[in-house]
Simulated scan of single mutants.
Amino acid sequence: MLEIRDLRVRFGAFPAVDGVDLDVAAGEVLGIVGESGSGKSVSMMALMGLVDPPGQVSAAALRVNGQDLLTLDAARRRKLVGRDVAMVFQDALASLNPSYTVGYQIEEVLRAHLGLRGAAARRRALELLAQVEIPDAPNRLKAYPHELSGGMNQRVMIALAIACSPKLLIADEPTTALDVTIQAQIMDLLLRLQREQGMALVMITHDLAVVAEMAQRVAVVYAGQVVETGALPDVFEHPKHPYTAALLAAIPEHNRGARRLQALPGIVPGAVDRPTGCLLSPRCPRVQARCRAERPAVVDGVRCFYPLIEEAVA
């Protein structure tokens, strides 16, 4: 369903995304995890064509359902993005237009991609609000985004995203700024819709517990690169990359009885402090001379010269 090869996004001298490869099968749920600033959201924004200048996007392949977005003209790409592939953004209130009602914005999507108008568009909009479990749908269609709660606005965003029954849905930290109860409801809703409609789902999140519960595979991203991919729960039970192991070690449940949470020292490298060798080398407890001199390639799903599996086998 989704094939990304050597995706790169640069903002001036800063490589926000540095050679990302990803695959998502039809009907699969892929989790993407990593620290803030690691390039998770920018990768998917590049796929959707939402990286504006001065950002520069390049890739060997960006295929959705067999169609290469790199070779499509602007008109054909607009027909594909929003219909076959859709995205739920982090901040629903900032993503919705405050000047138009919820109903108008849903019907706008239906007009643009499905050609629905008038009563047909309104019926479909009501169906969508019911699908995402918004009560009193006829009155909610007349509401403006500022008149709805954060959870309601996020449900409206999901309704917009699934309006055209996409084959691939990207959810970019869809529960940011929502309380814990509403977070669980939104996650359950996304998973239910994914199963009912047979969509592929890419879930971008900081929450490893969400990925462990929802996803079938995970991609761990660091400093614009995918450092480990694999099936769940294997990756979380037997991490191969030191960065994956560090993320898991920082989970509060793994630190019961300790005075401080485990943490990985240092910060994600930026434009001026990017290492010559492995990007994790300044922070990695297992660093060796080769790590500082050479940039590792991905081998068997892990980007590391000395993966943890070797230590376990020895």
Score class of each variant (00 low, 15 high):
residue 211 V to G: 02
residue 275 P to T: 04
residue 244 T to W: 05
residue 69 L to R: 08
residue 310 E to G: 12
residue 286 R to L: 15
residue 138 P to T: 00
residue 9 V to W: 04
residue 291 C to A: 10
residue 99 S to G: 05
residue 192 R to P: 13
residue 74 A to D: 14
residue 33 V to R: 10
residue 313 V to H: 10
residue 271 A to I: 07
residue 63 R to V: 11
residue 249 A to P: 05
residue 160 L to F: 06
residue 18 D to E: 06
residue 105 Q to W: 01
residue 277 G to E: 07
residue 110 L to G: 07
residue 205 T to I: 01
residue 25 A to Y: 01
residue 289 A to N: 08
residue 52 D to V: 12
residue 39 G to Q: 00
residue 164 C to L: 10
residue 293 A to R: 14
residue 232 L to C: 00
residue 13 A to Q: 13
residue 110 L to K: 12
residue 193 L to V: 10
residue 163 A to G: 03
residue 236 F to L: 02
residue 10 R to S: 08
residue 217 R to T: 05
residue 259 R to N: 13
residue 38 S to I: 03
residue 212 A to H: 06
residue 189 L to D: 05
residue 158 I to V: 12
residue 26 A to Y: 09
residue 211 V to Y: 06
residue 89 F to E: 00
residue 150 G to H: 02
residue 91 D to T: 12
residue 108 E to M: 01
residue 234 D to C: 06
residue 239 P to F: 13
residue 85 V to Q: 04
residue 255 N to T: 01
residue 222 Y to P: 01
residue 286 R to K: 07
residue 95 S to Y: 06
residue 179 D to Q: 00
residue 193 L to G: 12
residue 26 A to W: 06
residue 256 R to Y: 02
residue 87 M to D: 09
residue 6 D to P: 10
residue 83 R to I: 10
residue 45 M to P: 00
residue 210 V to P: 05
residue 197 Q to P: 07
